[in-house]
């Protein structure tokens, strides 16, 4: 599912992962001093549209995967309305005897939409960036040492192998009469039993893999060429311009309503 979105060929998937990462940080920074509900709301709408139109992610999927962020956002509204740091003056109604002020609801909505914006932008990064390309980009465009970059890629490749091994282990232990134990202590003992064989195999696999990589001439240095080159392209410039004009327009026009 994830992989299918990460590798489809829409605009956002072709943007350099580092550009997306920087844009994510800029958006977070821009939202820090915003406390009205409309600005983050509009930005959220625009972000979802981007994700759908430029990233090819269905709105239904975005909605479903955003539910946790929405719940998180609602708690902001609730906390600010019921337990504000400083109660507002325009009391709308009272709930269980607590007066609820418009200003506090507005602050809560602002913070709630802000968390939705952060969530959506994180999704934008995760759903349109394949981990391999992200690592290539960190090595080639960023300053990540190939020693770590290729190491992480190799480890990423082993995840399905370990998942399979863990399932085998669970079955093997069940056969020997060790069922899934409840309770904290049972859980802890079970973890301990699984840990030793899994670690033993992980260490063995890691050292074999290291030997194999070295025998193909990998020395971890930057003296290497790249088959899959991650370049900065005009798409990255478009992306950067797009994101900054959205933010600029939003920041200027919000003067009208605050």
């Amino acid at each position: 599912m994830l992989e299918q979105y990460q590798t489809n060929n829409h605009f956002l998937q072709q943007v350099n992962p580092l550009a997306k990462l920087i844009a994510l940080l800029v958006v977070i920074a821009a939202m820090i001093f915003v406390f009205d509900p409309w600005t983050p709301f509009l930005l959220w709408v625009v972000s979802v549209l981007m994700l759908h139109l430029l990233g090819g992610i269905p709105v239904k999927f975005i909605t479903l995967i955003s539910i946790p962020f929405m719940l998180f956002g609602l708690t902001f509204v609730w906390i600010n309305a019921v337990f504000p740091a400083e109660r507002g003056e325009l009391i709308l109604f009272s709930l269980f005897g607590l007066p609820i002020a418009l200003e506090n609801i507005q602050t809560g909505l602002s913070l709630g939409f802000r968390s939705l914006v952060f969530g959506t932008w994180s999704l934008l990064f995760v759903l349109t960036t394949s981990p391999t390309i992200f690592l290539h980009s960190l090595i080639q465009n960023g300053k990540l040492s190939p020693r770590f970059g290729y190491g992480i890629m190799a480890a990423y490749r082993l995840i399905p192998v370990f998942k399979n091994e863990w399932q085998q282990l669970k079955l093997a232990h069940r056969i020997r009469g060790l069922g899934e134990k409840g309770g904290l202590i049972g859980r802890y003992r079970q973890m301990k039993r699984y840990a030793i064989p899994l670690l033993a195999s992980a260490i063995r696999k890691a050292s074999r893999l290291a030997i194999a990589m070295e025998s193909k001439g990998f020395d971890g240095s930057r003296n290497r060429t790249y088959y899959r080159v991650i370049r900065w392209s005009s798409k990255d410039a478009f992306f950067a311009m797009g994101v900054s004009s959205i933010l600029t327009v939003l920041m200027i026009s919000r003067q009208w309503w605050i």
Binding site: K205, A212, G217, R224, Y227
Partner: peptide, 21 residues
């Protein structure tokens, strides 16, 4: 299982070539 570090077949063959510049 423990000879490869890349994701796709072509990238893996390329890995050795990249190392040798």
């Amino acid at each position: 299982e423990t000879q490869f570090c890349m994701y796709t077949v072509a990238e893996e063959v390329a890995f050795g070539l990249e190392n040798l510049q």
